[in-house]
């Protein structure tokens, strides 16, 4: 099982929207059963990223995340399924 982590500042707003839209993209790719999506705030994201294959995050927060082993992808428009899909798909290597 792969894991994707969506990150925002507080863990209650933007990361949930990004999680929701990422799940939609995965459903469209037929990958929703193979891949778990979890939301986290920036304070817990570093720890949570240890078990995640991919981290989706905004430009403003990527520096605060620091170095993690996961593939980090910056998303500009959290509502754009096209942007999420085009950036995520090459990393899924199914």
């Amino acid at each position: 099982m792969k894991k994707i982590l969506t990150v925002c500042g507080m863990g209650i707003g933007t990361s949930l929207i990004l999680k929701n839209n990422t799940e939609k993209v995965l459903r469209g790719l037929g990958q929703d059963r193979e891949i778990d999506v979890e939301a986290a705030d920036i304070g817990t994201a570093r720890g949570a990223a240890r078990t995640a294959d991919v981290v989706l995050i905004s430009q403003e927060l990527v520096e605060q995340l620091g170095d993690v082993h996961s593939k980090v992808i910056v998303i500009n428009n959290f509502l754009s399924l096209d942007e999420i899909k085009s950036k995520l798909e090459p990393e899924l290597e199914l």
């Binding site: 920036i42 403003e60 509502l79």
Partner: peptide
């Protein structure tokens, strides 16, 4: 944390 709450063009959460 910066203006990350502007999650999409024209929209601040």
């Amino acid at each position: 944390l910066g203006p990350y709450i502007v999650i999409a063009p024209g929209l601040a959460l």
